[in-house]
Design a protein around this nucleic acid. Sequence first.
DNA 1: CGGCAGTCTTACCGATCGGTAGGTACACCG
DNA 2: CGGTGTACCTACCGATCGGTAAGACTGCCG
Lengths: 195, 195
Amino acid sequence: MVETSTRERILAVAGELFYRDGIRAVGIETVCREAGIKKPTLYHYFGSKDGLIAAYLKDQDEKVLAGLTEPALRADGPAADRVAAIFENVARAARREAWKGCPFLRGAAEFAGERDHAARQLASGHKRRFERWLADFLDEHGVIDPKPLARQLTVLLDGAVTHAFLHGKGAYAREAGNAARALIEGWRRAGGSRA
Amino acid sequence: MVETSTRERILAVAGELFYRDGIRAVGIETVCREAGIKKPTLYHYFGSKDGLIAAYLKDQDEKVLAGLTEPALRADGPAADRVAAIFENVARAARREAWKGCPFLRGAAEFAGERDHAARQLASGHKRRFERWLADFLDEHGVIDPKPLARQLTVLLDGAVTHAFLHGKGAYAREAGNAARALIEGWRRAGGSRA
DNA sequence: CGGCAGTCTTACCGATCGGTAGGTACACCG
DNA sequence: CGGTGTACCTACCGATCGGTAAGACTGCCG
C-alpha cells in the first residue's frame, strides 16, 4: 500500500479529471467519488472548488515546466537544435490519446469570463515563467539579446501546442519546430538584435 | 424596430454570452432570459444545447475569418507587411476589455473531454480554412512554396492570440508579428523552400 | 483516565442544470 | 368553414451543481 496522504490523493485525482475532461466539466462529487472520500473532506482541505482548481494548477506548474524544458536540457548541439527538441517533443505527445494540450491554456480559456480568477493568474504566471526560462536558456547558449526571441518562441510554442491538440496531429508542432529553427538562426545571423 | 427573427436573436444573444463567459459557464435559461423567450422555443430551433453551440460556432466561422483577413487585404506592400498587419490587429484588439481571444480555440478547450464534439470539429475546420486562405494569400503575393510557411504563420498567429488574451497585452502579438516578418523574409531569402 | 485536535463521516441545503410533456395562439390552405 | 403546421407558451422533470451543519472516530497529550 502506497501510503499517500488524503490531500495528495484528492489532488492527484482532481488533476487527472480536470485535465482529461476540463475543469468546469468535472463536478466536486465526481472528484470525491474517484478519490474515495466524501465532500466535506475535500472542503476541509481545499475550502472551495476554486481552491481546488488553484491547488491543481499550482501543482502542475513545475511539473509542466519540467516536462517542457527537459528535452532541451537533454539535447545537445546549438541552441536551435535544443529548442527544436521541445517542439519535437510536443509533436510526439500529440499522438498520445491522453494528451490534451496545456492545462494552463485550457484552464484560462474555461474562465474567460472571470478576469481575476486564479486559473487566469496562474496561467499568466506560468507562461511568464517559461518565457523567462527560455530567455536564460538562449542566453546560456550564446544568443545575443535573447529576450525578444524568447518571447517569439514562447508564443510559437503555445501555438504549436494548441494546434497539435486541436488537430490531434504532430505535424503542426513539427512545422512550428522548423519555424523555431529559422527564427533562431535568423536571429543569430542578424547579430542577435533586430534590424 | 429592427424586425429580427427569433432564431437570429437567440443566436446573437447566445454568441455574446458564450464568447464573453465561456460556453459551459452559460446556461440555457440565461440565454432564454436574455433573448426574451422561453426554453421550449430555444429547443424548437436548436434541438439541444449542443445544437446551439454548433450553430454559434458555424455562425462565427466566416465572421472571424473575415475579421482576421481584413487587415491583410487592406494593407499594401510586400507579403511580410500585409501579414504583419494581421498581428498588429490582434495586438490592438487585446486592449479591448471585451476581446477574449479566439472563440474556436476556447470552445475546443472547453470540450477537451469529448473528442467528437461539434465544437472540436468546427474549430479544427476553421483553423484549416484560415491556413488555406493564408497559403493562397502568400502565393498571390509572390511567395514560393507557401504551404509550410502558411502553416508556421497560422500556428504563430494562434499563439499570439492566445498570449494576447492570456496577458491582456498586445506586446505578445506585436512580438509575434516581428517573428512573422522574420519568417516570411527568411523564406523568401531561402528561395521559398526549406534548405 | 479526561480532554482536545484533526480527520472524515452522514445527511442535508437551495439553486441550477439540460430537457420535455402538453397545450395555446395564429397564420395559411383547402 | 375546417384542417394543418409553425411558433411559442406554462409547468414540470430528475439529476446534479457547489456547499454546509453537526457529529463520530481516532490518536495524542496531559
